[in-house]
């Protein structure tokens, strides 16, 4: 039986309550915004009962204007047999960016969570080896957060007038 987006939405609302979940459907892909403490429960349910066994992507987005939920952690998962896709977003405050790790569920989350930690500073609780993966280990900040300019701030030979800083 191929599960449709509408059925999936109904099942999740029944299970977790319609008041805490926000569903949007910008394309043919169902997208759900949930409280961050529910991320593993939703992923586990989809994994166990609806055959969502493939983690396409896990990343974060920084919304500096969204006070209290500045960091969005986004999970893209697929049911490859039925060709159904699902996107889960959880928001967390930048002061306490703690989100439960999905490494127990998806092995692929190990690498992706390290990358997300590296660039956005999301602390994945329970991750077996949460340290920087792409940037130099001496880096003291999270470069993809919006408060950090893209340019290397350590150099002095490029001045504002010439380089539009």
């Amino acid at each position: 039986m191929v599960i449709t987006n509408d059925e999936l939405q109904k099942q999740l609302e029944e299970k977790f309550g319609a008041d805490i979940l926000t569903f949007v459907k910008p394309s043919d892909r169902l997208s759900c915004i949930a409280p961050k403490s529910y991320n593993l429960k939703i992923l586990q349910l989809l994994f166990d009962h609806y055959n969502f066994k493939f983690l396409n992507d896990l990343t974060a987005v920084h919304y500096p204007d969204n006070i209290g939920g500045e960091l969005a952690v986004v999970y893209h998962i697929s049911n490859l047999q039925d060709k159904v896709y699902f996107r889960l977003t959880v928001f967390t405050s930048i002061g306490e960016p703690d989100v439960f790790t999905a490494t127990q569920l998806f092995s692929a989350a190990n690498w992706m969570e390290r990358e997300t930690y590296d660039f956005f500073g999301v602390q994945f609780i329970g991750h077996p080896n949460l340290k920087r993966i792409l940037n130099v280990e001496e880096m003291t900040y999270y470069p993809m957060r919006k408060e950090y300019p893209l340019e290397d701030q350590t150099r002095k030979d490029k001045d504002d007038q010439m380089f539009g800083r």
Binding site: L134, N135, Y148, L150, E151, D152, R155, K158, F163
Partner: peptide, 13 residues
């Protein structure tokens, strides 16, 4: 010589 167009956090300037 200078980092070139890659004036970014990950590239040696």
């Amino acid at each position: 010589s200078s980092g070139g167009i890659f004036d970014t956090y990950s590239v040696l300037q």
